[in-house]
Amino acid sequence: MYEIMIQNILSPVVLFFVLGLFAALVKSDLKFPSALSETLSIFLLVAIGLKGGIELSKYSLGEVISPVIGTLFLGSILPIVTLLLLKTIKIDKKNAIALAATYGSVSIVTYGAAISFLDQIGTTYEGFMNAMVVLMESPAIIVSLVLLKIMEQKKSEAHVFSSKTVAFTSPLTTWIDKEVLKEALFGKSILLLLGALLIGLVAGEQALPTVQPLFIDLYGSVLILFLLSMGLTAGARLPEVRKHGLQLFLFGIIMPVVGGILGVLVGTVIGLSLGGITLMGVLAGSASYIAAPAALRTSVPDANPSIYLGLALGITFPFNLLIGIPLYYQLAQWFISF
């Protein structure tokens, strides 16, 4: 595992992230134009979606149903796991829910780095895993908002709660603002991923001559530029995380490991390959800083962005990039050998 970690750390993708992180910490004047960062983000979302759709066109529904169920399960259970871990930290309800949505959803860029890692070490994976990224974006956000409503209305006479049943007198659409549902299901990142996925699925392999020169061949190079930008952003967020103490810092490391173990376990149970299990671990161990924050700004405005964004970008993202990805790969190897 040590050799794999060193190989990952010395890859250009990680080194450029470290360069951006260093530039932010020494307060360099290096900056990325916001329009360029946005363009790079759009490129990565479209590339992952197209590649997933083209690969998905090769599989039948029966071959992907188990991964779909496993992904939806992870997206639904991870917010609950997050809240249970946060019970050991003195943190208010709104920020706890924000962290639950953030850590239940997925980081597209971490997933992209994991693909680069697998390609570098020559490990194959199921092409439909790119489609699982899309599926895991929304469930955690929706589940977290439902949990918030349950917590807020726990003492209400209109709702009856017990260890076995929960009775609701209001439909789900009255619990969550329609704009929040719209953001969770049709926000920019999800719309681009899902749209590109469907286009790739419909076009199939005949689309390769058109999309490969830009979206496949140049993917690694664009990812390097984007991670340089992410390094600058993460470095700027680190001081905000330090304000909230050691316990929150440790949560930003422990939670991805817990999520990664759950993801690897689910991937093993549904029979994925070594690469597929690793990616399932990466999906479960990453934290969103695109889709989830966009929804949280509307639904939980009282939550502090410096906590959920600072932790996801300043702690969990670098941890996964340096240690988490090779760790999930090693865990996948151990689980397969059992």
Rank of each mutant, 00 (worst) to 15 (best):
V46M: 04
L74C: 04
V13H: 09
L45T: 02
F168S: 11
K58E: 11
H244M: 08
L84A: 14
E55G: 13
G314M: 08
L50A: 03
I323Y: 06
I48P: 00
I254V: 15
I97V: 14
P67Q: 10
S299D: 03
G220V: 06
A131M: 15
Y125E: 02
F161R: 11
A196G: 05
F215Y: 12
D302T: 15
R237G: 00
G310E: 06
L40E: 02
T71V: 11
A98F: 03
V26L: 07
A140R: 08
P209V: 10
Y59L: 08
T298V: 15
T233P: 00
S306R: 14
I91A: 07
V180I: 13
I336N: 02
S144D: 04
M1G: 09
Y111V: 07
A35E: 13
Q206A: 15
S163F: 12
P171E: 13
V143H: 03
A24V: 10
F17M: 09
L44Y: 02
G204Q: 09
L50H: 02
D177T: 11
E183N: 11
L262N: 01
P293Q: 05
G20D: 05
G195M: 09
L181D: 01
F338V: 15
P293T: 07
P318L: 11
L223E: 01
G53H: 05
I80Y: 04
I42T: 11
G200Y: 07
